[in-house]
Each structure stands twice: as structure tokens, then as C-alpha cells.
Design a protein around this nucleic acid. Structure first.
Lengths: 230, 230
DNA sequence: GTCTATATGAAGATAGAC
DNA sequence: GTCTATCTTCATATAGAC
């Protein structure tokens, strides 16, 4: 049986010779799967969204499962790229963490990323490899970005991570950052998160992190309006 | 059309007069839905697991969706009860947080709770009310328990939560606690979490929390083996 | 209320022409 | 490669006897 295999699909961004309709199918499939999940999505929906016949779908992908894997893996690549593209102005650690936090929360709480996470979580039992792929593209990717910045800050004496190590400290910052927001958004798909709310989450995470790991002279990079710790 | 409505089902624990087979159906449905999710679960599986005929299922529940809602809501009640049943020996705040953290992580990282969360997250768009119900039974329930303990500790001068307020501090502790574990478990269903790993997560969360919110004389209730902060 | 048997429709996948 | 038309399977839900 001749068909487009996974490797070709993963390379779609860099393989212009890949069939035009196969790309249409893949894009349509991504949208349908992210909206409905794997089981509730139908090949009919995908076929119609792509504007091709059902036979064309099966000419490029062995079956619904292969199409799902290809769609999710391609989306993982985009996701990882957007995380790794996070850039920020150099500055003190509070400023860096704040900008990093903003960029990351805006990605992670976007409708697309949330739909993406819902599908991965729901289907992780049926497609274990996808869970791992996403873990690399998401949490692992952001952790390496955060760790790098924490290392710089530690070298400069801005923070002290000897209690946990850099990796763990980065994970803790990440947990503080997304904790409430991700919980709320995953459970309440109808709710919209305002930029002001994101500001609050970022500010709380940064200040809490710096109270735990910051040097004695910093209080999160800005003066606390409430009384400082004794 | 005469049928068992949601209120009866929710009361099943306290309504011995509810039909015996209806209970069997509900229990079977819970297992099947938690294992396969809503769309992939079939009424055939439920019928067979319950040991009744298909017609019996529909004699008690209007359709598959009503059965799903009833099953998840009943399970939410059990979940909330187990969270609220968390008890711990009185003691200093580090000890209290440690025991509370242990109890909660053991619940939240159990196979049942994880399967439960996966289904809720996956179906929150189709059944918005279930997301809210679960949010009450899970995060909200644990937050009220944590907040209560933090309030005691604040009164006793063991912690200082003036920077964020008690509610936010409780949420932050909760985020530190489950952060990495929940992420890993939701994405990698095959992975098993060891008690040692749970110990580590609890210890890290407690110590980080107390470095951020603890009074000057405490360092998490135990001597740090690495150098203390300056 | 409970069963057996079945109606009805939909979803995954393919045959065969072009 | 792509289409139209169709096959087959299976899932939800009901009819009608007891």
C-alpha cells in the first residue's frame, strides 16, 4: 500500500513537494480534532472541511488514527516553535521572569493551546507517544528557556537556587505561573481570560518566586505596598 | 415519560429505595466512562458491565448523555467527600502542610482521580456544568481546607500572607504541590508515581511555600542541608 | 421493570471509473 | 490522485412480550 507516511507529514513544513491536497486534509483534520477530540470527530467532517472526497483522505493516510497522529504531531511542532521563539529584553531577573511569564501564559491560555491540551490529555491512553511528544514540545521546552535565565540570574547573584537546584526552581516558577489559570481554563472552556487577569497571575508568580529564591535585597523588583516580611 | 431524574441519582447514596438495577447501571457507566471517555464509551459496554439488558438502561436514563451526567456528578460527590475527609494531626504549619499535601497528592494522583480529570477536561465543552461541578468538588474544596489552616498559622504568627492574602497563598501552595505531578500523570497515563516521588513533591512545595511566606525563623520546619538563604 | 429482537441511522473504509 | 457511489459494521434507541 502506497501512502504518505508519518515522517513525510512531520516534514510538511519543509517539504514543498508534499501533495497539496494532503496538506489541506492535514490542516482540516487538525481543526476538527482540536474541536471535537478524536472519537467525536468524523472523517466526514474532515473531508468536508478540507473540500476533498473521502477517498482522497484515505489516499494519504492509512486510517483515522494515522491522520490523528500526523495532525497532532504537526501541531506539536508549531507549539514548540512558538515557545522557543519567546524572546525578552535583557534586564534584571524580575523583569525577565515577568516578560517570560507573560509570553508563556499568553500562549498556553490561548484557545488553540487549550484545545490542544484537552485532546492530548483525553487521548493519552490510546496514543501514549503523543503525550510524550507534547511533553517535550510544551513543558520541557519552556523549562529549558526558564532554566537558562535562572542560571544567568544565579551567576549574577540575583537569586539563590541552592535549596532546590535550577531545574526544580524553574519547574516551580512554571507551576506558580500556570497553576490557577490552566485549571480554570481547562475546566471552564466558555470562560475568557482577560489581559488584566494574566497580569495578575504573572505578578503573583514572579513575586512569590522571588520571595522564595530571591536575594535579601529584592522583593520582586518592585516595592511591595503591603508590609514586607519581618 | 417516567424516568429517574438527576436529583434521584445524585441522592443515590442516601436513597435506598432507588432501584437496584439503576445503581448497577450507574456504577457500570462510571467505570466505562472513566476508562473510555464519553464518545468512545458505548451503551453496549455499559449494559454488559452492568449485567442488564439495553432496554433496562434506557428505562432509567433518558439517553447516553443523561447517563454520563449522572455518573460524573455522582463521582464528583465521592471525590469531594474524600477531599473534605482529609484530616491531620495538629502541629506547626510545616507539619500541617506536609500532611495535607501528602493526603491531597495521594488522592489527586490516584488512577481514579486522573481518569476522572481526563474525562472532565475532555468533555467540558460539551457538558459545561460538569466542569463547574468538578471545580467545586476538587480545587475549591481543597482550597477551603488549606485556607483554614493558613488562617490559623497566620494568627499564630507562623506565616505572613499579607503580600497576597490567604486565598491566593492557598492557591499558590496548591499549585506548587500538584504542578509537576499532575502534568506528568495527565500526559503519561502509563507512568506510575512512587511514594518516594510524592514525598519529594510535598517536601519541595512545603519548603518553597515557607521560604516565600514563612516567618524569619522557620525554614520549612526542618534544617536545610544545603546552605540557607542569606 | 425487564427482557429479546430489531429498527434506524451514522461512521469508517473501499471499489472502480476517470 | 481524485472522484462518486457503496459496502459493512456498529451504536443509539425503541417495540412489544412477559
Amino acid at each position: 500500500m502506497r501512502m504518505t507516511n508519518n515522517i513525510d507529514v512531520v516534514r510538511m513544513e519543509t517539504s514543498p513537494e508534499l501533495n497539496d491536497k494532503a496538506l489541506k486534509v492535514l490542516r482540516a483534520a487538525t481543526g476538527v480534532f482540536l474541536t471535537h477530540g478524536f472519537s467525536a470527530a468524523t472523517t466526514d467532517m474532515i473531508q468536508q472541511a478540507a473540500g476533498v472526497s473521502k477517498a482522497t483522505v484515505y489516499a494519504h493516510f492509512a486510517n483515522k488514527e494515522a491522520l490523528f497522529v500526523a495532525a497532532i504531531e504537526a501541531q506539536c511542532e508549531k507549539f514548540e516553535a512558538s515557545v522557543r521563539a519567546i524572546r525578552f529584553e535583557p534586564g534584571n531577573i524580575a523583569k525577565v521572569l515577568r516578560e517570560l511569564g507573560h509570553a508563556y501564559l499568553n500562549i498556553v491560555l490561548s484557545e488553540t493551546a487549550l484545545a490542544f491540551m484537552r485532546v492530548i490529555i483525553a487521548e493519552a491512553s490510546r496514543f501514549p507517544q503523543l503525550g510524550s511528544t507534547f511533553y517535550q514540545a510544551g513543558p520541557k521546552a519552556i523549562l529549558s528557556v526558564v532554566s537558562e535565565q535562572l542560571a544567568h540570574a544565579a551567576d549574577a547573584g540575583e537569586i539563590d537556587v541552592r535549596a532546590t537546584g535550577i531545574e526544580t526552581a524553574a519547574m516551580l516558577f512554571f507551576s506558580l505561573l500556570r497553576g490557577e489559570g490552566q485549571l480554570i481554563c481547562l475546566m471552564h472552556p466558555e470562560s475568557r481570560v482577560s489581559p488584566v487577569q494574566i497580569d495578575r497571575w504573572v505578578e503573583t508568580a514572579v513575586q512569590t518566586f522571588l520571595r522564595a529564591f530571591g536575594g535579601s535585597e529584592t522583593s520582586g523588583g518592585r516595592v511591595l505596598h503591603t508590609a514586607p516580611l519581618n
